[in-house]
């Protein structure tokens, strides 16, 4: 378990360097490519254009067309290329642009990349990294806004990380590339431009280790991806009212560090899980079930889940705002949990 005391590198003048989420991702990827000659990037418009979200800016200049590959719009062949290259010892990074596009290549992710090591009796590893941009909030509508982590976390053999800020965007990306398993890096589109403190040197963040982003004694809030920032904002608001919530960022949803959650719930006796994905069948259901299984006697209230309603992501900004959970709903949920006892 890491905590809020986690070391952050400071610039020589004592002030920490700030970098945007997307630049932090880019820096981590570039450093991982310098570290290992076997790392290459393939995807639609990743080389010449630098990625539609600027994720791959300047990488073609440094690494050239051998390691930065523009491909046709062929996600099945793209991921398959990554699987085959990984099976032959490379460390491919393939980019799916919008997470919604996994629908057209799910076989290669779920039936090939995820299962190959197991089905083959351990004869090989598939060190494949899949990067993609998820999340609502940009008016991109139902086919460009989803958070589909529950689909992937359900598949044995896959790992799934959800960077919640610039620091984790870099560190989780580096760890994903260094990992010997297929790892999906779910960047969040709304966070791309958000700045945070990011060490200049290469660093990894252990996969499967949750981070306690804020300590508190009244309610444990487990938040995924962009919801971590919303939960921290809710915490500020609640603190004014004398309520201290603990915010846990799992960082990795597969494998999931439940021990950090259980330890927190045993102290706070209340838990709330919040994610952008629809509530039904989401990670919140899994986390709630595991908490009641491991810490039932410590709970003063049922575990509360906050997610999106069971509908596609709407387009109109007024509908989209009503759809995506936010700090107000998290704060309200915490208050409801406290009213139970």
């Amino acid at each position: 378990m890491t905590t809020i005391t986690e070391a952050r590198a400071a610039a020589p003048d004592g002030t920490a360097r700030k970098l945007s989420y997307v630049k932090a991702f880019n820096e981590g990827l570039a450093q991982a490519m310098r570290e290992d000659e076997n790392v290459f990037v393939a995807g639609e418009d990743v080389a010449g254009y630098g990625g539609v979200f600027r994720m791959f800016d300047n990488l073609l200049d440094e690494f050239g067309p051998r390691r930065m590959i523009d491909t046709p719009i062929s996600e099945a062949a793209l991921v398959g290329l990554g699987v085959g290259a990984a099976a032959r010892g490379l460390r491919p990074v393939v980019d799916l642009m919008f997470m919604d596009f996994i629908g057209v290549c799910l076989d290669q992710i779920v039936n090939q990349a995820a299962k190959m090591k197991y089905m083959f009796g351990g004869a090989l590893s598939v060190p494949l990294t899949i990067t993609t941009a998820s999340g609502a909030g940009l008016g991109a509508a139902a086919q460009h806004s989803q958070s589909l982590e529950a689909w992937l976390a359900h598949v044995p053999g896959l790992k799934v990380v959800m960077p919640s800020d610039a620091y984790t965007a870099k560190g989780l990306t580096v760890s994903a590339i260094r990992d010997d398993n297929p790892v999906v890096v779910m960047l969040n589109k709304v966070l791309l431009g958000s700045a945070g403190e990011v060490p200049e040197e290469i660093y990894g963040i252990p996969l499967g280790q949750a981070h306690t982003a804020r300590q508190g004694s009244d309610v444990t809030v487990i938040a995924l991806g962009r919801m971590v920032g919303e939960a921290l904002a809710a915490a500020d608001e609640l603190a004014v009212q004398g309520v201290e919530i603990e915010v846990i960022d799992p960082r990795t949803v597969q494998p999931l560090d439940t021990e950090t959650m259980f330890a927190s719930v045993r102290r706070t006796n209340r838990a709330l899980v919040v994610h952008e994905a629809v509530t039904f069948g989401g990670l919140g259901a899994e986390i709630a079930a595991q908490i009641q299984d491991a810490a039932f006697d410590h709970l003063d209230a049922p575990v509360l889940r906050i997610g999106a309603p069971f509908s596609p992501v709407p387009f109109s900004p007024v509908l989209e705002k009503a759809y995506v959970p936010d700090r107000a709903r998290i704060a309200e949920g915490c208050r409801r949990l406290l009213e139970r006892s």
């Binding site: 051998r66 062949a77 398959g80 290329l81 699987v83 085959g84 290259a85 099976a87 032959r88 290669q108």
Partner: peptide
């Protein structure tokens, strides 16, 4: 059909190396 793109990846790796 799933083996087709995987072979493409294996060929890519050979050339890369």
């Amino acid at each position: 059909g799933a083996g087709v793109p995987i072979a493409v990846g294996a060929a890519f790796a050979a050339r890369y190396k």
